[in-house]
Design a protein around this nucleic acid. Sequence first.
DNA 1: AATATATAGTTCCATATGGAGCAAAGTTGG
DNA 2: CCAACTTTGCTCCATATGGAACTATATATT
Lengths: 151, 151
Amino acid sequence: MKLIDILDATPFPIGYRIAFLTNFWREPILRQMEKDFGIIRPELTVLICLSFRDNLNARDICEITEQPSNTVSRGVASLERKGLLTRTRDAVDTRKQILNITADGQKVHDEIMERFKSAEARMLSSLTPIETGRLHAILDKIARDVANWKD
Amino acid sequence: MKLIDILDATPFPIGYRIAFLTNFWREPILRQMEKDFGIIRPELTVLICLSFRDNLNARDICEITEQPSNTVSRGVASLERKGLLTRTRDAVDTRKQILNITADGQKVHDEIMERFKSAEARMLSSLTPIETGRLHAILDKIARDVANWKD
DNA sequence: AATATATAGTTCCATATGGAGCAAAGTTGG
DNA sequence: CCAACTTTGCTCCATATGGAACTATATATT
């Protein structure tokens, strides 16, 4: 038996395929990233946020990513130890720490993003350009609807 | 800032959306499943395999799911303790234990599958039938190509 | 101003998970 | 038949993760 047989039998064929592809597309890169860069998942999440926007604090990152605050806290602390981001006390609200990615952090971020990009290209290599365009449009429509899922 | 902004900036728009949807579609159900049924992820994996096919052993499940043997071993042991599967020594090869799902196990499995099914319906509720059909076809094409990804 | 409440970030703790290595059983090659 | 190797499933250990509680600071209420 192969996984592909279960693919045919599932009562949620699209959800199953989406989760299935995440497993085989994203997870190997995350594991390799740990080995090669010593960066773990919550650290990458923080790097991505800070690469996109300056001067966030940990709470912002919690809200953006819907991750628990202790996970973000650890990610921020370890990234600082590695010199991949800086922490500065907010002068107005001294509880807050303003976070910024460093040049090293940006470099690591970019290299990891490059791996995801290559993996995506491989994942889509069996599709025609029209199929790729349609897939993008449909996934985008669903993703933008996620905010409405709140039960 | 919202997650949706990062959605627009990523260099791997389709892979990002697939992973994003997995996070928001599958993960909440898995967490709720833990609370409501006391079933954790590797246990569900085993249940799904055994629901689909009888008389598998732990090694089969490792190969089907590409999970490490200790994870499967733990899943099998705890499911047996809960009465959701049975273990029988293989008379020919006494190292092997032949696994079968029980009626209780099938019931739990079916209830969990029902939740995934509902969540899928909600996830796809913003699509037209044509879009849903196209999405299914394209994801299926990619998923069946996964076997060729071996680097 | 004093007290109650809310928020930012951390630590503590319990648990999930994977890698490595193990014992027991089976297989292969002489 | 016996030694070397393979396979099955397990335990040990290190680490990732999330919930809850905690500290320090800020804000609201009286």
